[in-house]
Design a protein around this nucleic acid. Structure first.
Lengths: 248, 248
DNA sequence: TACCAGAAACTGGTTAACCAATTTACAACA
DNA sequence: TGTTGTAAATTGGTTAACCAGTTTCTGGTA
């Protein structure tokens, strides 16, 4: 089994300079040496202090700004953003590297989001939404019958439902976890055999309930549609936990 | 009312050069001119093509890489990553600038996440979780009785529950929307008057059900706890939509 | 013709210098 | 003494040049 061999080797994470800087700044904030509203030392000062090029400092600040932790004011300075700092400790380690590979949690969350997305879509859909969902469904059907790569079209169908829910936040969150779901699916061949075919039927059923504006039924159909994947991920996750239990 | 005045003015979005580049690359991909696996033109070529400095191109690529859309291979080139490209259309405009200010959607999603988070926490909590939640609750209580800034401690309480749910993805998603919730709260004084006091009682009730491992009751308590905020955001949102209806 | 060094061109990575806007310090004036 | 205008220092923004690998082309050899 060559995979195991590879696993023991591949942990050489090349820690880019910027990442180290991020870690240091994070520490300064979480230890309270830098409080919300404080100004950071200038980029030049930091680069000299840390013994790295200014571009690295720049990159680190950009990333931190992404997460809303820092705010840089042009020609003036960089400050620690005030809000949500209490949650910072978890933010970086969690959001940044959600690679936790906790497939079950991932799918469980997806079920949660999708079930409610279907319910809201049924209640709030416009006629245009029905058209959009139908189109993506026929795209999916084509992909299935041609026999390959249907997964992306599958998720696209679900995304259209999220759009019909008229809740952009819900949609955004789904978009955030979608890439991880995708890699998970592709790596594990979740949609093998004639699973796509049965899934297709379930999709039609979901669409039907959404069209009928039956929120509860739509949610229920979506839930049972995803339940199978959830069960699959349970067994898979247990396997992984067993073999990788010694990892951090 | 000076706020209204400011609102009509502050929409001068300074479109940074990097953002324009991102938009162009996004378009190239979504129109199919760049397919997954394709190599992007070199940074130099792009910078000359677009008439901007290389650092801007660099910044754009970094951001795109963040979202898993691009992958840069050192000393070789930058390629379009294969996964989830279909979903790209929405990804950038949505996740990047979720500033949509759709407060109702934000709170609605929060209710959804939190309700299920409470349910799972009740089912999966350890004794340590109970201790952690209790502690954050007494922190909150102290803040309330001292009379200020209780909001952050409030959210911290909810976060501990998310941790007890043993679903890191759920927790991460909550962390993502938390900053927006916070600014919303602070801007609108949601927790004014003796709202914190009644909220405190509800918190204790939630904790009680979680301790008793009663999932349904915990979910129910959390739901009614948040329902008031949801109602508040409905009225507020309508007001905003009315006054800002002409915005994009 | 097939193949394989070796050099030249090109890649992203990194640094240092320069730019324009902001902030700060200070001196002149009221 | 307090205010204000100006200049110097400092800031993030931007550019251009250089570095160390990678890829590609090329010419000679078997």
């Amino acid at each position: 089994m060559e995979k195991k061999f590879l696993k023991t080797f591949k942990e050489i994470i090349i820690e880019k300079p910027a990442d180290k800087i991020i870690q240091q700044i994070k520490e300064l904030i979480s230890t309270g040496q830098l409080k919300p509203g404080d100004k950071l030392p200038s980029e030049r000062a930091l680069s000299e202090l840390l013994g790295v090029g200014r571009s690295h400092v720049r990159e680190a600040i950009q990333k931190l700004e992404f997460y809303g932790i820092l705010k840089t004011l042009p020609q003036s300075g960089t400050v620690v953003a005030g809000l949500g700092i209490t949650a910072l400790e978890g933010l970086i380690s969690d959001v940044l590297q959600m690679e936790g590979r906790d497939f079950y949690a991932l799918v469980e969350t997806r079920v949660l989001l999708e079930t409610n997305s279907a319910r809201l879509a049924a209640l709030r859909r416009s006629d245009d939404d029905i058209v959009a969902i139908s189109n993506s469904l026929s795209d999916y059907e084509k992909a299935v019958s041609s026999g390959k790569d249907s997964v992306e079209y599958d998720l696209l169908f679900h995304l259209k439902i999220a759009e019909a829910s008229k809740n952009p936040v819900l949609k955004s969150l789904m978009l955030i976890i979608t890439p991880d779901i995708l890699t998970y699916f592709k790596d594990n061949n979740v949609c093998a055999g004639n699973r796509p075919v049965t899934a297709l039927e379930e999709h039609y059923k979901i669409l039907e309930y959404i069209e009928k504006k039956n929120g509860e039924k739509a949610a229920e159909a979506m839930n049972s549609h995803l339940q199978e994947i959830l069960n699959f991920s349970i067994s898979k996750n247990q396997l992984l936990n067993k073999s990788n239990g010694n990892q951090k």
